[in-house]
Design a protein around this nucleic acid. Structure first.
Lengths: 112, 112
DNA sequence: GTTGAACATTCCTTAAAAGGAATATAAAAT
DNA sequence: ATTTTATATTCCTTTTAAGGAATGTTCAAC
């Protein structure tokens, strides 16, 4: 997983933009209006989301239409998948670890 | 989705800690050793991960054993799910949006 | 009870990110 | 051609987060 993707999402205004775009593509002006932000900030946030590959732009006259990029979410999903398997395999590995730890302690005592 | 979760993950050292813990619980010392960081920084990062609900601690003598919290990943998963549906429903909503936009332009001309 | 190991916390400095205001650009409307 | 609309960018200030060094705390071992 790339930290650029995560840190792009880790800012509340940007997260709101992403959740807005869940309902379909929007222009900068529409986002500005709905989130009650200033246009330059929205443009800046969109730049960061765009650089992170989370959104993509399409120019239409003097409008810019932003929409979510599927791939970004697929990547996140794939990453999460590597964690899902952990709990599928075993619910609680703490007991195992404690035993392992305790047996190591035992060894140390023997050696001293 | 909470931005605390995302920003906790959005830092490379912390992301590495999380990926380390994928293989099972570890003590602070083990994390410190494997990531070649300084102990205080590791403790600080673990604090942030813990506050975000991504890891949980178990005290064992003077050791602290950290492990991933399933719920955090389930929440991320649930959030991602709301996006999966978008693309299941419709692959490309840009064309729709463009038509919508163009019909609005038409209206505006009529009104003026 | 004194020493050492494991970990957490504090304080300070430095670096990165965010917001604001102003300005730049490019297409559209007049 | 000039003005207006939509958007991007720049520069500056403020806030937030990270790293380093030192110190605090707790338990264990002796």
């Amino acid at each position: 997983m790339k930290t650029t993707t995560l840190s792009a999402l880790a800012e509340s205004n940007r997260l709101q933009i992403v959740e807005l775009l869940r309902n379909g593509p929007l222009t900068v002006g529409e986002i500005t209006e709905r989130l009650r932000l200033r246009q330059p900030q929205v443009s800046k946030h969109l730049r960061i989301l765009s650089d992170a590959g989370i959104v993509e732009v399409h120019a239409f006259a003097n409008r810019r239409i932003y929409q979510l990029r599927r791939q970004a979410f697929q990547e996140l999903d794939a990453w999460l998948d590597s964690f899902r398997r952990i709990w599928e395999e075993k619910l609680d590995r703490l007991d195992d670890y404690l035993q392992e730890l305790q047996s190591k302690e035992g060894c140390r005592e023997d050696q001293q």
